[in-house]
């Protein structure tokens, strides 16, 4: 087998089907969505081809500004908290013996793949009055009567961090698993305490990875579309929720599409930044 550029049609044949599928069912829908964002909405939940900027002009409203700034603030908070917990955790995880590591990975993957619906349901149950943890606190005498902790900002934050945590661990995992821990041991032999070695050797060495992971967790949290509805109040709705709401319940596809285009641009810019940071560290 000689690895060279393919020449004949037969040699190109294998890529035809995947290429066709990805173009027809990803590129075209994506392009269509961008097109729709410039369409004009007509009453009755429909839209017709046009080229108007009205959908984008709505970004200038105070309502949209509030949703956007809340979304960014929430995603940022979730990302920072998730990385703050996940980094020391992953640092320990990669040094566990192989079987224990695999058990943890299975557990984390299971939590990660849970539907947002299920996470939302589980957390609203956990924080509910009738079945929530407050019942435990009442049972041990710390509280007078059980009360509901959901919906609310705290409930939303807890749910989002819960959802983002396994993702964050798995983004950090390759970098930490490949990290040369002899550097840390060298610091230890020079008299550093474990905590000092962690903060003076590991954290600076992986600075770009950490920043990149914060960005990835940020984009991940930005994508959460159900938890704000299930665990938050209407003022806690994020851009993703608003897009869903506009598309499905308000039947305003052009505006939903315009917001989606905006979200794509923000996400792509951030992911690009994360990739550049990751590559820079990889080349060092």
């Amino acid at each position: 087998m000689i690895r060279r550029p393919p020449r004949t049609l037969a040699e190109h044949a294998p890529i035809l089907f995947p290429a066709l599928m990805l173009i027809v069912f990803f590129v075209i829908p994506f392009g269509l969505m961008i097109a729709v964002s410039f369409f004009r909405r007509v009453q009755g939940g429909f839209y017709e081809p046009d080229f108007v900027l009205a959908n984008y002009e709505r970004f200038l409203s105070a309502f949209f500004g509030n949703v956007l700034s809340f979304s960014l603030m929430l995603a940022g908070l979730v990302a920072v908290v998730a990385v703050a917990i996940a980094f020391p955790f992953t640092y320990r995880l990669v040094r566990l013996p192989h079987p224990a590591q695999v058990r943890w990975l299975v557990f984390l993957l299971s939590v990660l793949s849970l539907s947002e619906v299920i996470i939302g349901f589980a957390w609203s149950t956990l924080l509910s009055r009738t079945a929530g943890i407050t019942n435990l606190l009442v049972a041990v005498g710390l509280m007078e009567a059980p009360q509901s902790l959901s919906p609310g900002f705290g409930a939303l934050l807890a749910g989002l961090v819960y959802q983002a945590f396994p993702y964050t661990v798995l983004v950090l995992y390759p970098a930490l698993a490949r990290f040369d821990f002899s550097l840390m041991e060298a610091a230890r032999t020079l008299g550093s305490s474990p905590a000092r070695a962690f903060f003076t050797v590991l954290v600076p060495a992986l600075r770009n990875t950490i920043v990149g992971t914060v960005i990835m967790a940020f984009v991940f949290a930005l994508g959460s579309y159900l938890l704000p509805q299930l665990l938050g109040r209407p003022q806690h709705w994020t851009l993703s929720v608003l897009i869903t709401d506009q598309a499905i319940y308000q039947s305003n596809m052009p505006f939903a599409a315009a917001m989606a285009v905006f979200l794509v641009l923000v996400s792509l810019a951030l992911v690009g930044l994360a990739l550049i940071l990751g590559r820079r560290e990889g080349s060092q």
Binding site: P18, F26, V27, I28, M33, V219, G223, S240, M253, A260
Partner: peptide, 24 residues
Amino acid sequence: AFEILGMTPFILPPVITALGFLSF
């Protein structure tokens, strides 16, 4: 380029892909 296309839907917020399909 097709590999990148294949990776993209997973990285972007899922609402975007969902909306693309809805329009399509």
